[in-house]
């Protein structure tokens, strides 16, 4: 089974991936847990969910999470696709999923996912990663933990500098 990096109670670890990604032009949907495109989810999602499978949706950078709003409670995974590491739209999608829609399932970064983005991703509520640069969980954790401080609130639990300062006074 393929693996990916996930933030668990034990920190960032390698876990097996129970999901199969079904491309839009795949006629055949394999048994078990699947991740679908947004379009495919809209046609087949209902049926697959009713079969008792865990279903995830893969959102491209052109798509917005608003279109998933009502389905979120039923989704096990939202996979955010980074077409290029330079494309920052998914950071907004990640924050909206967590902060505006209160989504508690897995938010997974897929595509051009490099360790230099680790901290940004974690801060925007992404808790699972399919690194394109072969990063190990250790490398990922190292990159994500480089900065002892942050200056703003985001979708994670980190306490921003201005709060720490007020507490110290």
């Amino acid at each position: 089974m393929p693996t990916y990096i996930k933030l668990t109670q034990d920190g960032l670890t390698t876990v097996e991936d129970p999901f199969t990604f079904v491309a839009d032009d795949d006629q055949y949907i394999p048994p078990g847990d699947v991740i679908l495109s947004l379009a495919r989810f809209q046609t087949d999602g209902e049926r697959l969910l009713s079969e008792g499978r865990a279903v995830g949706v893969r959102v491209t950078a052109d798509e917005t999470v608003e279109s998933l709003a009502y389905d979120l409670p039923r989704l096990s995974v939202v996979a955010l696709e980074f077409p290029k590491f330079r494309d920052g739209r998914q950071y907004s999608n990640g924050r909206l999923l967590r902060e505006r829609y209160g989504y508690e399932g897995e938010v997974r970064a897929v595509g051009d996912v490099l360790r230099e983005q680790a901290q940004f991703m974690l801060r925007c509520g992404i808790d699972a990663f399919e690194p394109a640069d072969g990063s190990t969980p250790e490398a990922w954790a190292h990159a994500a933990g480089r900065f002892r401080h942050v200056y703003q609130r985001a979708a994670d639990e980190r306490v921003p500098a201005f709060v720490l300062r007020a507490e110290r006074q």
Binding site: F85, D87, G88, Y91, F120, R123, Q152
Partner: peptide
Amino acid sequence: WATLHPEFSF
């Protein structure tokens, strides 16, 4: 606020 802003660095 803008320093390494997690959402607005790309």
